[in-house]
Structures are given as C-alpha cells and as structure tokens.
Design a binder for these strands. Structure first.
Lengths: 341, 341
DNA sequence: CCAGCATCGGCAAACGTTTGCAGCAGGTTA
DNA sequence: TAACCTGCTGCAAACGTTTGCCGATGCTGG
C-alpha cells in the first residue's frame, strides 16, 4: 500500500540500506547515487515510516505536552509556541488535557511515555514524589513548578507577586486579599508566600481566601467573601479569577478601582478587553514554551538539569487605584511619598 | 532498558505470543494464565510499545488535529473536547498549528500522515483540490468546511448569519456591514452569502468589508471604514473582530448599541466579559470536536462519508439595539411589527 | 475405547527501518 | 608489487509487537 524504503530501493537499483543511509546519513553515500535515490523517492512519494524508525533507534521524534486545561486561556499561547518551536526541530507534539486532575495526569504521562522522547509537564498538580517517580520512566521538563533536581522552566511569579503587592502598597492599600488558586499548584504557593512576605514587611495585612478553581466563576463567587474582609485591594491567582471578580463587583455596584483595586496574574488576552482594563502580571508564556522544548531536546544529549526562571512584568492598567488613605486624585509622586518603597 | 513483552513472558513462564494475546485478544487465553500474565505485567510495569504495534497492525491509535491558530480562542474548546473524546477511545492526539498558512497546512498533513490513523482538519485554508488530494494519503475529516464527497462536520454558520441578520433587521436596521474574515475560509463565504441573501430579501443593504485577519486588531482597524459606510449595524466574521471593533468604537465615542449595533460569531468566553456584552452566534465547538473524532474513527470501519451540520444559536446580549428608524425604547412587539419577519 | 473436537499455547514470519560488519574497487604508500 | 587505506555498498540482525498455523492436551459422544 504505502511506499516503503524497499520500493525506492528496487526502483533505483540499490539496496535498502543505501536508501536508508541516503536519508539518515547522507555523507556515507555517493553523491551520484544519493541524488538518484532522492529522485526516485520524490517521484514515488516516499516518506520514512517514523514508527519503524522509532522502533530501532529508540527515538520517536515526538514530544508530549500535558496541560491542566487547554481551554484556560493561559495555555494556548504556550502550546502554540511549543508546538511551532518543536516542529521547527522536526518534532511532533502530543497535547493532552488533564482537567486539573492529578490522577489523569499520572496516567497520561505513563501512556505517552513509550511514544515520545520526552514530556513537557505544565503546571502539574501531582506531588513532587510522583513526578520524580515518573521522571525515571521518561525525560521530563516541568513548567511552572520548581522541583529540586528536575529540569524546569518557571515564570518568576514570586517576583510578579512582589511587584503587584508593592504597587498596591504604594497606592496606599493596607489590607489586601489573595484569592488562592487550586490546591497542588506550585505557582499558587509561590504567589502566596511572596505576597504575604511583602505585605508583612510593609506592615500591611494580607488575608488569604481559597483554594479556588482557576476560573471566572470562582472569582465571581468569591466576591462576597472578599468584601466581607474589608480589604481594599485584591490579588488573584490568575486573570480569569480577577475578571470574574471584576464582574461580580460591578454587579454589586462596587467601584473598581474606586472602592476596591484588583490585580490579576498572567495577562491573558481578555485582560485588555475587559472594563476596567485589568492590571496584571504578564507572564512570558510563549518564551517558556520554547525554552522548555529546548531543554527537553538537549536533555537527551547531556544529562543537564537546568532550571530557568523567566522574568515577569507588572502591567498597570485601570483596575488599580489609590487606596482609602489617599485622596482619589493622588499623583504618583504623592503615593510614592506616602509609602516607603 | 524498558520492559518488553519478552520480559513478561519469561517472568511468567509463557511464550511471548501468549502475553501478546493477553492484551490484544484476551478471550483466546485461559483465564488462569491470563491473570498470571497480567499480574507479572503489572508488577514489572509493562506497557505495550505502540510503535511496534503500529508497525505490524498498521494502526497507530493516534490522530492528528490541525488548526489555523491555537491561540485563537475559538479553537481551544474544540481541541479540548476532541482530545478528551479521543483519549476516552484510547487515541492520542497530535495538535499542530498552521498559522493560517495553507502551505504549512499541506506539509503538516503529509508529515503526520504516516504517524496517525487520520487527521482532523479545522477550518482549512487550502483549496478543495489540495484537500481531496491529501485525502488519498490519509483519512481526513474536515471541520468548518463543506467539500462534496468528504466527511465533514460544520457548524451551520449560514443559519447563524441568517438569525443574526434577521435580528438586526427586526431592530430596524436597514444598512448593515459584514466584516469579512480571512481569504480561503469556507465559513467566511457561507456567512457572507447567507447574510447577503437575507438582507437583500428584506430590501436592506449589506456592505462587505475585507478580507481581514480574524483578530481583534483587524476589527479595530476596520472601525473607520465601518463608520464611513454609514451603516448602523455590523456583523463580524468572528467575536475577536467584533470585540476589536467594539473597543475602537468606544475609543471614538460611538455608542454601542446606541449608534451602531455589533454582532459577532463564535461566542468565545471573552464575549461575555466585554462591555457591552457581545450579541453573537454560539457555535457548538465542543460538540463539533467530538463528532469529528467519532466520524474519523468510524471512517476506518465502513467507508462512510457523512456530513454533519451542527445547529448554531443566536445569543442576544447588549451590543445590539434598535436601529435609527425606531425609538430607542421600542419594545420587542413594536420592532416585530415593524419588519416582516 | 476411539474418533472428533475444543481450547490453549508455542513457533516463526512479518511490519519498515537502522546499523555493525564485511567486501570490493581503486588509489596510495613503501 | 605487496600491503594498506578510503569510499562506497550490500548483507543480515535487530527493534517489540501481532497473528496464521499447527500441535498438544483433555473432554465428549457414540
């Protein structure tokens, strides 16, 4: 049916091994022979069978990309960048969605293990132990989580959270809320820790609410609880939750940023479309995807186990404003003077 | 290194063929033997090598999913649904992104062909001929495009466009704009045709602008041109463009829906987050993904070549309102009386 | 008690490649 | 001229499965 190496060999009057070498080790075959083989291959429409190749070389030229939720707008840019980058290096990408379920996650890694040269694990919800276990079965690069001894690329959310909290403090807010994300999220712990430390250092209060699902509905549902704390500013685990909160606040006629300031994390596309535009921490997701692919592919060669920490940026838009201790029209200079930065 | 069928055979004292049958044809092996084999397999952590299996059976248990742009929020729900559905049937999914480029698209199909049992082609930008050509190399199901003789699942955008235009007409609008999507899009042609026919039948005018990239920036950039037409309502190729237009209109102090009504297509998540909330045509993308997977997997069995047309729904939100010939507060009954529906 | 028949498990070929080894021709060195 | 290298190609084994075929075993019915 399909045209194989054998057909090409017959048609060009050489042995199959010569055809094989024409593709996998061209320098070993006479240029003349090579071009003849290439010509007939082209003409017959020959395409090497990757399964067969994988069987003998042990390299599939495939990689797996496992994310918690494809529909979460945080991931698509990462998936896109990783896929494009991988393809440029002649790798194909399996994408799979765990629905935030650690069990599915583990199953998926196992199922994919034999079929790929390595797996990119995005924001895994498994325990560190489980991940280390799985690493023994298949090369892994973890994204958005730091585990000692494991190659990883993370966005420096700690840094991002610090910037965000400082921004809020500088606006005069003294009581903040952190809207936690899902249980098991490393990112969540990082943000919480960084935000807590920064607030505490400035003598401000930080109330933690959660855990929550990282979706708009959860952000909206948390509105009452947020208002009940009496806080004047909130940092959310991600933009989706922040946006949900924004909507719920709007429905309750709570002015943003007049009465409450809101900042998200991720800088998804929708953050700029929503009113007020969301102040948020921009994550270099595309860069992370590319970096992770590179790490994974290098990992095969040497046994390197680097960890990359990508810089994040606070993007100040319209959902944050002066806190209650400052006049609404306070200038930047005034707020700067108000809190020790 | 990895544990193979041979290891399991040795450890459980049977021939490899028995182990093989334990997994691929359990009814042929004695229950007692079977459970023994299963036990040792479990214990050794054996996982069948899909590449080897594929080599001999010709079935990879993989499918390919090719989309124009993963980051376009229209696709992730479809990808997610397709992947989950496929996995439930023990298939893994390659996802690839063409960046709206027909050449990349064709290359991808070819590259993936040998490695999958079939390919889902979403909103392809190739010509019909090219697609029919490729179909000879690998089973294909096309999503969002109708090509005679090819299995396809489409969302009935024609129906959606008709509903949208009728809705606008019923609000009293007599001059509409259609903001076209990308060249080569079947969906675009369908919408344009349906919208044009519906408007014409009602004696209204429809101006077509475009083609455009299906992104917010293009929608925003079209604002001037839209206003220049003097139309009072616009239908956009997709929500992204509609939202971009909404923003640009807002920046120009053009009231929506006061002066101009806007309706999008797709009902992406952001449409509900934006102010005013976008009136749009909801597409059952998740259902489409699942249906396409089912078609693809059945295609192997019989040679069926069905075409599925999924129902779409107009979702009326706040971006559409009475046109210039009606008082701003006109009731539904009044507008209904105004135009022959 | 034997023919006939299921049921089960082993044997070996096959799938489409890659790759170590060996052979061969022609050229170079001593 | 012999010994040796170099560049190219062929040979065949191997990768981990599946599967058609056959033989062994044990049971059934006559």
């Amino acid at each position: 049916m399909a045209v194989t190496i054998r057909d090409v060999a017959r048609a060009s009057g050489v042995h199959i091994s010569t055809v094989s070498r024409t593709f996998s080790a061209p320098h070993l075959v006479n240029p003349e022979t090579r071009s003849r083989v290439l010509a007939t291959a082209e003409q017959l429409g020959y395409r090497p069978n990757r399964a067969a190749r994988a069987l003998i070389t042990g390299r599939t030229h495939n990689i797996g990309l496992i994310v918690a939720d494809i529909a979460n707008p945080f991931f698509p840019p990462l998936i896109k960048a990783a896929e494009t980058h991988a393809r440029r290096r002649d790798y194909h990408v399996f994408v799979a969605d765990t629905d935030e379920d650690p069990i599915v996650e583990a199953d998926l890694v196992q199922a994919l293990a034999k079929q790929v040269d390595g797996i990119l694990l995005c924001s895994p919800r498994m325990t560190d132990d489980q991940i280390e276990q799985l690493r023994r079965e298949v090369p892994l690069v973890v994204i958005n989580r730091m585990i000692t001894g494991l190659p990883a690329v993370v966005m420096d959310v700690g840094q991002g959270a610090r910037s965000a909290v400082r921004h809020l403090l500088s606006l005069g807010h003294r009581h903040l809320v952190y809207l936690s994300g899902p249980r098991g999220s490393w990112t969540n712990r990082e943000i919480r820790r960084a935000a807590g430390a920064t607030a505490r250092a400035a003598g401000a209060e930080l109330t933690v609410l959660g855990p929550h699902q990282p979706i708009t509905a959860a952000g909206a549902a948390a509105a009452e609880a947020v208002l009940a704390t009496g806080a004047t500013a909130v940092l959310a685990y991600n933009d989706l939750m922040a946006i949900g909160l924004l909507q719920a606040l709007h429905d309750r006629d709570v002015a943003v940023p007049g009465q409450v300031s809101v900042v998200g994390i991720d800088d998804i596309a929708a953050s700029e479309l929503v009113r007020p535009k969301l102040t948020t921490v921009a994550n270099p997701t595309a860069a992370a995807g590319r970096a992770a692919v590179d790490m994974l592919l290098q990992q095969g060669d040497d046994g390197s186990t680097g960890q990359i920490n990508l810089h994040t940026d606070l993007v100040i838009r319209n959902s944050t404003g002066p806190g209650p201790f400052l006049p609404a029209g306070a200038t930047t200079a005034e707020v700067a003077a108000y809190v020790k930065e």
